[in-house]
Amino acid sequence: MALQNRHLLGLEGVSKEEIKLILDTATTFREVLERPIKKVPTLQGKTIVNLFFESSTRTRISFELAERRLSADVVNFSADMSSLKKGETLKDTARNIEAMKIDMVVMRHASPGAALFLSRVIDSVIINAGDGGHEHPTQALLDLYSIQEKHKRIDGLKICIVGDISHSRVALSNIYGLKTMGAEVAVCGPATLIPSEIEKHGIGIFNKIDDAIAWADVLNVLRIQLERQDRSYFPSLREYRKYFAVTKERIERAEKQITIMHPGPINRDVELSADVADGKHSIILQQVLNGVAVRMAVLYLLGTRS
């Protein structure tokens, strides 16, 4: 059993067996992360470039740790979008880096399809670390892993993704992955942040957070992007907090077991109240740990694929 594609560009079209393979492999790396020496020599001699055209300290650190713990050589390249647009094209940048003999590229980029585009213009193995509002497959995989770790299954669980669904790569990758693994999925947020025809993916839509809490086994709460406020998707943060925030009172009112997840970084007391983020329902820090293990699994499976 190996992954079908030599790149990881998204979870759309990735089979249940492949996702299982990644999650099972990640279990091995969770054990490695508990060792006194959290490092294995598996990718010795491989060079991995982290190409980040949007700042995402968290994702980059998680990938970098995963790479270093597999003994790969790591090079970081960060540039903001505006300089890329003015200067060299992505194709030229990538080809130049590849000319220096590298093996894999982990890329974060603002354009949907950028990772696929990269895979068409260079030969290295590509891992998509987020392409605009499209996909962020390793985030969804670590979410799947964390759900499975907590609930011992994914199949049949009810998972609701809460917040800005329209601009979220995390939401889309989660929807693809969760549906493949047999979960029931819903989204919840203001109508202005729910993209057109998303129900065609076979998922439910809630506009009331209390309804979502009553329905779900797991809430995956997304970050509200404060910088999108200029387009007036909702009247104010105050109003958002009042009607959509996941708070302790709301969870307690529901009188049920519920798991709270968040891909980070959290806007405390905006989409998620601090007491919930740090409370007993939260598995947010496990997500962070699992992120390294899942990324090691993906790097291992793609990096040693013959």
């Binding site: 059993m1 190996a2 393979l21 099972d24 492999t25 279990t27 091995t28 054990e31 490695v32 598996t42 291992y300 499976l301 040693t304 694929r305 013959s306």
Partner: peptide
Amino acid sequence: LKEIQYQPLLKGT
């Protein structure tokens, strides 16, 4: 790891 035909399944330590 690079030479072998089939990727071995990790069983874990």
